[in-house]
Each structure stands twice: as C-alpha cells, then as structure tokens.
Design a protein around this nucleic acid. Structure first.
Lengths: 342, 342
DNA sequence: TCAAATCATGCAATCGATTACACAAACGTA
DNA sequence: TACGTTTGTGTAATCGATTGCATGATTTGA
C-alpha cells in the first residue's frame, strides 16, 4: 500500500503539532535544534515526501514552467530546452514543453493550456508576428505570469529576451562568401515577419553594400526551414538568366536542400558554388560535403533564458525588469564554402 | 491587476453558496437548469478559470504526466512525444518531458523529480537494463503510479508496453539484404542489455539461418547510435580479412557513419556494398544517397502509449491490466540497398 | 523573588474546489 | 390534512502545508 506520510503523521508520531513539524522541516530558527533533528530523522524514517500540490495551492506557485517552441526535434530547440532544464531543475522547477508546429492557433492553445495549468512562467520562441498572438501574450502579461522570449521574439516593452545577433550572423556569413570570391550571392530567407529572419536578411544586405556588391532583389527568395523547400527554391534560382554563384540560407535544412539540388544539376561545390547554412545542426558537420553554418549557442541560450527567468522570479522589488541579451554568432567554415582549402 | 475569480466570488455575486456554484459548473443534475445557466453565464462574465492546483490537491491528481526519453532531438522520440501529446491534451493532461541522455543516474533523478511533482503517470523509454533502475521502477509501481514502457522496455509483470516487433524488423531488413545478393552481412548492434537491440540482432540471425548463410560472430559489432561510432566501427569491419559486403545497422545515425566511411574508402554503394539503417530518421530520405531503413511508426506508438495510459486511468475495477502492444515495422527500401534499381 | 524578555510550540485560518450530509420547500398521495 | 418524496441548496469537512498570532515555559535582570 502506498500510504503517503504527511506532516500530520509525523506530528502524531512525535506528539507535537503539524505546525512545528512544518517549521522544523523548513529549518525555521524558531524551532529548537533538538526538535529539528528529531523531526528530520523521523521524517526520513517514515519516508516523508513533501506534497508539492499542497504547497502549490497555498503558495499559488505550481513549480512548473512552460516552454513553447515550434518543434522539439531539431538540435537547436532540443539543445535550448536542455539548457533551460539544466538551470531550472536544481531550482526545483519542472519544464512543460509545448510544440506549435509553426501553427499559430496551436500556439494560442498552448499558452492557454499553460495558464490553466498555473505555470509560474512561460518561455517562448514564437511562430510568427501576427496580431493574434500579440493579444494572448498581453493576456499573459496582464496575469503577471513572467514571460521570456528566446530566439524568435516580439518587441514588447518590459519583456526580456535572449537572442543571438542575427544581423551580425547574416553579415559574417555573407562576408565570408564574398571573401571566397562569390559575386552573386543569393539568400534563402525565412518569414520576414520574424525579427530573426529580417535581421539575417539585413545583415546580408549590409555585407553586400559594404563590399561594393549591388543588391539584387531577385536573389532573395523565401524558403521554409525544410529540405523540400530548399530544393524547389534553389531550382527556381538556377533558372534565372544570371543564376547566383552562392547561397546564404537562413536555415540549415533549406541549405541541405539547396546542396542536393545543386548536385543534381551537376554543379560543383564549392568550386562553382558556395553554400552557407544557419543553425549548426549536427548533420551539417557530418555530411560528406560538410556545410558551413552559423552556430547559435543553443545550450547557452537556454541557460541564459532560465537564468533571466530565475532573476525575475527572485526580484521582490517593485519594479519591472527588462533584459535583452544578445549572444554572439559563430561562423563554422566547412567544405561547402571552403575554396581556399581545395 | 490580475484578480483571479474563484467560485466564492461567483457565489457572493449571486448570493448563493460556493457549493452550488461548484456543482453548477460541473453540470451536476441536482442543480436546477436555471441556476446552472445563471452560474455559467456569471462565470463567463467574471472570466472565471478553475484553479487546477486546488483541484489537484483535493483529488490527488496533478493532471501532469511524465515522459522520459533518452533524448528529444531525434525524429523518433520527437514524434512519439507528439503522438502522446495529441492524445493527452484533449484529456486535459500536460506532459512533462525529461531527457536521460542515456545516463542511468539521470534517469533515476528524473523519476524522482516526477514523483515529487506528483505526476499521474509515467511513460518511459529506458536507458538500459540495469538493476539500479529496476529498483526505482518498482518504487514507482509500489506508489501505484501508472507506468508504461514504450520502445525500450523492461519485462515487468503487470506493466504495459508499446513496442514494435524488433525481431521482425531485424529479420526483414536482413532478408532484404540477402535478396539483394549480399552474402556477408554485418550487423551494427546496440546495447544488448536492451531488448529492442537484442531482438533486432536475433531477427538478423534468424534471417541468415533461414537463408543458408552461416552466422559469423566477427560481423557483429556494437555501435552507439551516433555518426562517429558508425564511422569507427565500420572502419574496423573493413579491416577484417574477409570484410562484409553489407551492413544492417540498428541505428540510422550509425548507418550514416558507416556510409561515410565506406565512401571515404572508395567503396561503391549499393553496387559493392549495401546498407540498411533503423528508425527512418528524415535525413535517411534526403541524403543524396538515400538510406534504406525501418520505420517504427513513432506517432502511432505515442498515441497508443497515451491510449493505454488513459485506459488504465479509467479502469476503476479492482484488477490490474497489463497490455503489450507490438507495432509492425515497415521497411523502406532506398538507394543504399537498391541494386535492382540501378 | 518577581516582572520582563526570550524561546519553543500550538491553534486556527488559509489557499480553492469538491462532496457527504443535512435540511427546507414543494409536491403528490391517501 | 398529514405525511412521505423529490428537488434544490447550504453547511462544513477535506486535501496537505504554511504562517500570523497566542500562549506557556524558561531564562534573564534588577
């Protein structure tokens, strides 16, 4: 039988009150050393476990925090989550993970579910920049549930965020391609309503500008973050009158698709064409033709996110704290864009 | 201000008792239609949300269920989790995901964390077959917390499990290689203390036996489920006096490593060497040289796991129910083993 | 030796929802 | 008219831990 022992059981056993037991277990200085020891020992002997549901009700804190991501089965989000967990678990928080699958209505559902479940905070990488989720996010804030953005954020006053410098990332990736001698650099961009993709694009543009390359709109084409789309989009680019000689893709998956299409058309990489992806997914390293890419320090990002959350929770002062942390992107140069190493 | 309305607020507003409000909200037939309507309307007007923490304390059910997996950033586990969520969310359960990273002590920690958090059930794909986790799993069962295995299970009386027929999977994969004309088929196996890997191995052996091929122990070599290990292990195999002419890998990741090493050594696939992986990870399909593999129907597996859990929860009878569900593996034949298509 | 201060502990309310039991009103029946 | 039923609500206990206030015991100081 699984008789759970409560503080009342311990109290009865020792002929003291539950209040004393509670205080003893919490090392309340008002309780004598001897009683504390006695209670602690008895608790251990009786295999006492604190009922966190009771604590949750009383304190109004569930001890759960919600993390909302587009999907969990990429290295990037998987690693961010790992980082979050590593920081939060020692602080006795559990992490409830929700996936939006890039579906806005699902995102709203997820937020509602988490609020219903009385989470103590929400960390989210949003699907896109619509007015709809704007509304629900404000509802979260009104409820005073701490909310933090990571990677894909919205600009909302008073809300902290942890991102990487996507502008810089776009810049150094493009600059690297220019350094390899590429002149007609295309960009597979993501949904421009998301700041991250917008910034990567702007970084790309600026790098072109700074290096005397005219920006050509036809070289910029939107692609979803998957292989199929990378293939079809690249196919379109290659049909241009003057096709590009390089691609900076805002997604590793699309970059992989691009490479497949290039190879299918018999184009030599990196001799005739260079490719740089984004995200440092493990496969980029392990492809036969390894793919140059930008590392986003996802583990670090997760840890920072959790740290900011903890800071915010422990902030007992009567002011709102907004923290914007921007991590540094790192370019990993691999075969897909290494002309010097040939 | 985020004043949460409780049933007491509604009661006060309507000058009735909280009990009536509670019953009305739960559509208790003892309450008159008119009162129910009145309460419902007022609740909506006052933006009432049930406090699930209070419910949790009273009922002893947290509404959370824990899912423990080795890692979340593979398509397989990601999809299983998605399947679980899709079944459980409509039933008002939240899913807390824990990763073991194949670390046994972390697994034990995770289970303890989940028990502390008062989860209503645990679904787990274990790391390995040690005595240590045997112990903690029995502790879970003693506490009457429903526990279900998926994919990587232990054989424990009274515990349900959802797996695929790994023996059959190993058999059909190997048979396929034999059909392609391969005679010296190697097997990259997993940790033999795990039933899934043991069964894949046994299926492999049986297929050899049934087709008049002598089993050669030196062709069986253990590999972790990652690319690096696949590479190094394949390198060893190729150094044998009579190297194999095919590999059936119990992991897609190891299969990818194998293919890289084979290519590095200038071996033609599938002409000189055939490879079959396991798991149907997306990259197997999208490689330039697509990889034959076994699909494990992870989404289905997740859904079944959740369904069995729900069944178990709703079982009010006084008997234990044990359900062993075995899904059918599906072989996807791709370039890495398609000699007929050349 | 006695009042005041200190210390250790108990009492009871609280968090919010549910529910067994009690009870009043309305109704039907003899 | 009187009494048993049914119907609709209210009262109060419960889930388990925490905590403000009260209280009794002990120590300190004059």
């Amino acid at each position: 039988m699984s008789e759970k022992t409560t503080i009342y059981d311990i109290a009865k056993e020792l002929n003291i009150s539950a209040a004393t037991v509670s205080r003893a277990l919490n090392n309340n200085p008002k309780i004598s050393e001897s009683t504390i020891k006695l209670v602690m020992d008895t608790a251990a002997k009786m295999n006492y476990k604190q009922n966190r549901l009771a604590l949750a009700l009383r304190s109004g804190k569930s001890g759960n925090i919600g993390v909302i991501v587009p999907r969990i089965n990429t290295n990037f989000f998987g690693s961010v989550i790992r980082g979050i967990e590593e920081e939060l678990h020692p602080n006795k928080y559990n992490v409830i993970i929700c996936q939006t699958h890039e579906d806005e209505s699902r995102e709203i559902e997820n937020i509602n579910t988490l609020l219903d479940a009385q989470v103590d905070g929400i960390m989210i990488s949003i699907t896109n920049e619509s007015k709809k989720n704007e509304k629900i996010i404000h509802r979260v804030l009104e409820k005073n549930v701490p909310l933090i953005f990571f990677d894909r954020k919205k600009n909302i006053d008073g809300v902290s965020s942890i991102t990487i410098d996507d502008f810089k990332a776009g810049y150094i990736a493009t600059k690297h391609l220019i350094d390899q001698g590429c002149k007609k650099i295309a960009h597979l961009c993501g949904d421009q309503s998301l700041e991250i993709y917008e910034n990567r694009f702007k970084g790309y543009q600026k790098a072109l500008l700074d290096n005397g390359i005219t920006f050509d709109e036809t070289y910029v084409i939107q692609s979803k973050s998957n292989i199929e789309d990378g293939i079809s989009v690249t196919n379109k680019l290659l049909q241009l009158k003057t096709p590009p000689d390089a691609i900076f893709s805002a997604s590793d998956f699309a970059a992989l698709g691009a490479i497949q299409e290039l190879k299918a058309q018999g184009i030599q990489i990196p001799e005739d064409f260079c490719v740089v992806g984004f995200g440092n997914e493990p496969f980029t390293k392990f492809m036969e033709l390894s793919i140059s890419t930008i590392d986003q320090s996802p583990l670090e990002m997760g840890k920072m996110t959790a740290k900011v959350f903890l800071e915010q929770m422990n902030n007992t002062e009567d002011f709102k704290m907004e923290k914007k942390i921007v991590l540094n992107p790192i370019l990993h140069i691999r075969k897909s864009s290494s002309r010097n190493n040939i």
